[in-house]
């Protein structure tokens, strides 16, 4: 069997370093998710308001964040804020800000879509039974919106975790960066190390995202 260069993983603290890198990536995504999901729900609820000014502002925000590649957003926040305002953001902080802005924008659109997908008839049949507007929302509309939203938002969370692999571009030493360092350092002794190391990272990302995807699938089935 060909040498996969797996031995570098057991050299020194390499495995611990990789796991440390994974933790950095997961930390960025977990903090961003924890803030951007509630923020996105709030913004999404605001998008369903009738106020045209609020609607327009949120629409512009959403489209702006969506059109910009995440990499460009990272560069803008890391480099340009220093240039423009003299902020000295760490790579991690800049990453978290960008991920919150991006996650909240995507989430708000998911919330708006799920909310608006509830047919008008559901409101009517509730109101015909004597429910007030507030009761209709509480007992009929919001529970249905949440059921539609859950699989979608879980999908968004896994996307956010995977996209953290970009933050190495602004100098954050996360799992991919650690991997590159390990491969570089062992170029002479284990020229095949790249394969083993990247395989390990593949498995790590898989283990981080797979349970979440399974949960989404389960909920989708249950709440079909």
């Amino acid at each position: 069997m060909q040498n996969l260069g797996l031995e570098v993983l057991f050299k020194g603290k390499n495995m611990i370093r990789l796991l440390g890198g994974l933790w950095v990536a997961l930390k960025i995504s977990l903090i961003s998710v924890a803030i951007s999901i509630p923020l996105g729900i709030l913004l999404g609820a605001m998008m369903t308001w009738k106020n045209p000014i609020v609607k327009a502002i949120l629409r512009i925000y959403l489209e702006f964040i969506r059109i910009m590649p995440q990499m460009v957003l990272l560069f803008v926040f890391y480099f340009e804020t220093t240039k423009a305002f003299g902020w000295d953001l760490s790579g991690e902080t800049a990453s978290i800000i960008v991920f919150i802005l991006w996650g909240a924008a995507e989430m708000s659109d998911l919330v708006r879509g799920a909310f608006e997908s509830i047919p008008k008839h559901q409101y009517e049949s509730a109101e015909a039974l004597g429910f007030t507007r507030a009761q209709t929302l509480t007992y009929i509309i919001i529970p249905q919106t949440l059921r539609r939203l859950l699989p979608l938002s879980i999908n968004l969370i896994t996307r956010m975790i995977k996209t953290t692999s970009l933050v190495l571009m602004i100098g954050v030493v996360e799992v991919l960066k650690v991997a590159q360092q390990i491969i570089e350092a062992n170029r002479m002794t284990s020229p095949n190390a790249a394969f083993g190391v990247y395989l390990t990272i593949f498995i790590m990302y898989f283990l981080a995202c797979w349970p979440i995807s399974m949960l989404a699938r389960y909920l989708e089935k249950k709440w079909r």
């Binding site: 008839h121 559901q122 009517e124 049949s125 509730a126 015909a128 529970p143 249905q144 059921r147």
Partner: peptide, 9 residues
């Protein structure tokens, strides 16, 4: 109603 409009959840 014609289309029942039960609450699906």
């Amino acid at each position: 109603f014609q289309s029942y409009e039960l609450f699906p959840h």
